[in-house]
Design a protein around this nucleic acid. Structure first.
Lengths: 310, 310
DNA sequence: GCCAATCATCGGAAAAAATGAGGAATAGAT
DNA sequence: ATCTATTCCTCATTTTTTCCGATGATTGGC
């Protein structure tokens, strides 16, 4: 009671052709194989499904006709599965789940998305903001197809493609006394009230910039979102250190800000793209390609603050 | 690019359990078989579908999840097919196509049908009136599950179960001069105007009754239906020879008729039931059983005319 | 640092499928 | 009536696939 799919296919095409030999020819097998398959199906179901008429071919019995439509349906489902499986790899369609840990991802991901979707309306992109930890876990457990994150605490089993190196910069209000400086040293900031981006990995990173220089920062406020930090800085609560910058120096509150490169050599962050090794489907490859292309272009330079770009 | 159903099943249960070894246990195979099957599926689709984490189990990738729902659907379709195939044999349900060549089938088939359908509303019976030739051809080509017909010109490949032996009788109008006779000989009828049932096999049969006795009948009219012949006889157009009789001696026109046995020994007809050898489904068996039971009972004697019953 | 659990790999054994030749039944033609 | 072509069936043989069991590698917990 378990006919193989192959036996069902032979059974089906034999009845489509009303002939074992013609079916065998179209299946590129020998007639006895088809005959055996039909017998197999009949045995498995314990039913007489075919009447054999030597020199004339075969005919389904009434029961065989009944079963045939069900078998045909199953085979069509199977063909669909194979076709869809092939499409997954070859077609630039479907949905793509992206996990990211990049506070200003909204500054560049929309542009990248637009280049993907403008050619096809069969693409659906899902963006999930998360932290470095959940991004990598989500990639491994299948929640995300691809992740953007910082190359720290890399888990094994994830392939990475570097996108851009992001040095930290100082963010001050436009009317701040340091706003006119060409560059700012951590020492300068440690005398100021500070605003800290307090997110899973970022918090320790920003604190380490000061502690490694032997400084103890005075933290006036913390926020868990990038824009909250900017708002606090814009309101004059303090200054901040951040890594990526959006393409505007106006905060949500309308206050003006200024990004100033750090003078001392501080360990920059590496924004990378993570994906699973092996053979990802084409949409994943395309997204990765678009991201790399974007970050190789001059557009991406506007997202970072270096001594030259300031 | 043709993963077997077995490989798909292994792939599916492995991802259901998030573990190759647990899946192998539930499938009663060795883990390496499951591992190989997963690899097979990945190869066939050319996609990375599973992330393997030694000592922790496996996880589907986002692509794997996508494919998994399709595979689950296919497997459910397969299970359905198997279940329905089993039901075809075991369950007393479904539709039954009956082909018959018996002019008075409507006198007994409804009663037989009622006994089948009164226990189940999942039974659907389809009756097809046809001649001896098309009945047998229809059985062989799957149009009919079972046929009722006359055992003449039997084709090979059809199993027969005799139902009843039917001698011919004379049909006269109630006010006919022969209506009072206990029996009638072909000689008596050959002097009368005759009405003939003109159907594929019947026509020659009725003519042969006279020609074999060296008589030439005078045929006043012919009809292609049993009731038309009765109507013609009732209207006084002539007398007729028929085999089976309905359970009424009133014609559609309201005329009274009388059935009188033939005195001479004339070759009777054999009403038989035909079906395909092998393993018919249960509904077919049940119908055959009901028919045989009916014709073994006294009820069926009322359908024939013998010297004793007259 | 060792142990337990888990997945991956590999060669040989078992099972299944396919092959190809030979035989039987039938329809149609000579 | 005989002959031929077609078709399906049977069976021994070969090929392919699948499965098993042992071994090795990786990870996490004690």
């Amino acid at each position: 009671m378990a006919p193989s799919l192959k036996a069902l296919r032979y059974f089906h095409t034999a009845l489509e052709h009303n002939s074992i030999s013609r079916a065998a020819e179209s299946l590129n097998v020998v007639p006895s194989a088809v005959s055996a398959a039909i017998e197999q199906v009949e045995q498995d179901f314990g039913l007489q499904l075919v009447t054999r008429m030597p020199s004339k071919g075969i005919q389904p019995t009434a029961t065989g006709k009944l079963l045939l439509v069900k078998v045909r349906h199953l085979l069509e489902e199977y063909e669909n599965l194979i076709a869809e499986g092939g499409d997954l790899r070859t077609a630039l369609t479907g949905s793509l789940n992206v996990g990211y840990y990049a506070p200003v991802a909204s500054a560049f991901l929309p542009a990248i998305s637009a280049r993907l979707t403008k050619d096809s309306n069969a693409i659906s992109l899902r963006f999930h903001e998360c932290d470095n930890e959940t991004a990598q876990a989500g990639l491994l457990n299948g929640t995300y197809d691809v992740i953007l994150f910082v190359s720290e605490d890399l888990k094994p089993g994830i392939d990475c493609a570097p996108l851009i190196t992001v040095p930290p910069y100082a963010l001050v209000a436009r009317d701040h006394k340091l706003a006119g400086r060409k560059s700012i040293a951590p020492t300068d900031l440690s005398e100021e009230p500070l605003v800290l981006l307090d997110r899973p990995f970022a918090g320790e990173y920003y604190r380490s910039i000061f502690t490694q220089a032997g400084l103890t920062p005075r933290i006036a406020a913390t926020g868990t979102t990038h824009e909250m930090v900017r708002g606090l800085v814009g309101a004059g609560v303090g200054s901040a250190i951040l890594n990526m910058r959006p393409m505007t120096e106006v905060s949500y509150a309308g206050d003006l800000l200024r990004c100033i490169p750090l003078s001392s050599e501080v360990r920059p962050l590496q924004l990378v793209m993570g994906y699973l090794p092996g053979n990802p489907r084409r949409l994943v490859k395309a997204f990765i390609g678009e991201c790399q292309q974007y970050f190789a272009s001059k557009l991406a330079q506007r997202l970072i603050v270096t001594p030259k770009s300031a």
